[in-house]
């Protein structure tokens, strides 16, 4: 899923300062799962903003709404009849969702209520961890199902570097060395021959470096 983190309330208050009427839009997709942008978080954030603004003597009217997904046109359309009546939309979806709203409602200012994080997994309740950078050219079959681009702090293709100590990355003892994980797994799978092969320089054009990416499926158009 796409993860995110709350923005500091001070930052959001500063962002909404010029407005008296706004829509607070949540998303039932990824950000609900990582507990930062779902229906419940809409309620908590709306209450917080109302209280703060009322206490400051400048009440704020907030229309609370949560869309199934902010990244799909059919769900975004639900807001169409609503946005005209408000000065801005504060969205707590991921950056893709927020931008999609901005695209669909060009006359309405869009405010980001969260910081979008990474493509990750739920390690346990309350802990999420990055697994994929969406580089567009997967080699997990060669690396024991563990991604060197994401799990190594240097994205090395022939790790580990000298900073791997007792299974931890030099950057932070709490981060497992991605290459230690890869090697352990290759050994367990009997695939160490994959380690000894020189991998060609990665083509980053399929990653963000090639410019904003798009996917076109002719069979679905």
């Amino acid at each position: 899923m796409i993860t995110g983190t709350e923005k500091p309330i001070e930052e959001i208050l500063a962002m909404v300062e010029p407005y008296q009427r706004l829509i607070l839009a949540g998303c039932h997709g990824c950000v609900t799962v990582c507990r930062v942008g779902g229906a419940k978080e809409v309620q908590v954030l709306a209450s917080t903003l109302r209280l703060a603004r009322e206490a400051a003597g400048r009440p704020l009217e907030i229309h609370e709404v949560s869309l199934e997904r902010q990244c799909d046109p059919e769900y975004v359309e639900k807001l169409r009849g609503l946005v005209g009546g408000y000065q801005a939309v504060l969205s707590i979806a991921c950056g893709a969702g927020i931008q999609f709203l901005a695209e669909k409602f060009p006359a309405t200012p869009l405010l980001p209520g969260i910081n979008t994080g990474f493509l990750g997994v739920t390690v346990r309740q309350g802990e999420w961890s990055e697994r994929c950078q969406g580089c567009g050219d997967c080699i997990l079959h060669l690396t024991g199902g563990i991604c060197p681009v994401t799990r190594c702090a240097k994205s090395l293709f022939h790790g580990p570097c000298g900073g791997s100590v007792r299974g931890s990355c030099e950057v932070d003892k709490e981060i497992p060395c991605g290459w230690q994980l890869i090697i352990d797994r290759l050994e367990a799978l009997g695939q160490m021959e994959n380690y000894g092969r020189l991998k060609p320089c990665k083509g980053w054009s399929s990653a963000r470096d090639g410019g904003p990416r798009r996917i076109i499926r002719e069979d679905m158009l």
Partner: peptide, 15 residues
């Protein structure tokens, strides 16, 4: 504020 008798509170991020 509602009673109209108080000084508005300043939240940390306000203004």
């Amino acid at each position: 504020v509602r009673a109209g008798s108080g000084q508005p509170a300043e939240a940390e991020g306000g203004r």
